[in-house]
Amino acid sequence: MEKQNITAYERVLLARSKDRAGIFDYIDALFTDFIELKGDRLGKEDGSIVGGIAMFHDIPVTIVGQRKGKTTEENIKYNFGMTSPEGYRKALRLMKQAEKFKRPVITFIDTPGAYPGLEAESNGQSTAIAENIAAMSSLETPVISIITGEGSSGGALALGVADKVWMLENAVYSILSPEGFASILWKDSARASEACDVMKITAEELLEFGLIDGVIPENENMMETIDGMLLAAIKKLQKLKGPAIAKNRYEKFRRIDGAYVGK
């Protein structure tokens, strides 16, 4: 298929495809000695996020990634990758731990959005997301985020405040799912395809806006490409001291202003 011929909506469908690589495909291909670490230490384990430590070449790293599951049974178990406050709190715990041991953090983002459920709301979904975003913005260790499938709303950003944000060629990153967007703006979720055209959610468009830092081509060498990009970026970031890394990250997001007009 010619790249140029794929519509934004077709990319959404590709990003959601069941055949796409999941978090453990990345862990198996890119890291060794993975040890999964579970639980938020506040009362729950949320399987929609996989976290742990592993070796990347000769560097110990912390991995946090969203998991949708590959079978219907798994989908239900992991809530289709819709993370609850407990999942974000687990992620936060592991990222703070990474900071303590000066390990780079690598996040893999793939979610239709944070879980919009009764329990999630009661347990502080807003607060959990806000606290992750805030903590990531000042984390004094390298952070790299890769959007591998759907990067939808605050549920994605809660793992995405990073020194480098990369997207797979057919991944999408958006304020909201196209269905939700169409429903809010036009009161008609069936106009999702149309929404995709105005939302500007593809990797190519977002790179052009400077909202992401790189696009990863989806071909047979994809894992090698990611490996190379990760290694180069981590080596470079590790030359800086923790506070300098955090300061640069702050400035990076500080600059995103959409070219407002006025003083």
Binding site: A134, V161, M199, K200, I201, F253
Partner: peptide, 25 residues
Amino acid sequence: ARMQEGLFSLMQMAKTSAAVEKFKK
């Protein structure tokens, strides 16, 4: 978030959170 500004709006969540975090620290 402001729908009409798409991902730019989402990024304001990061930007504002980072600013208040720094202010508090």
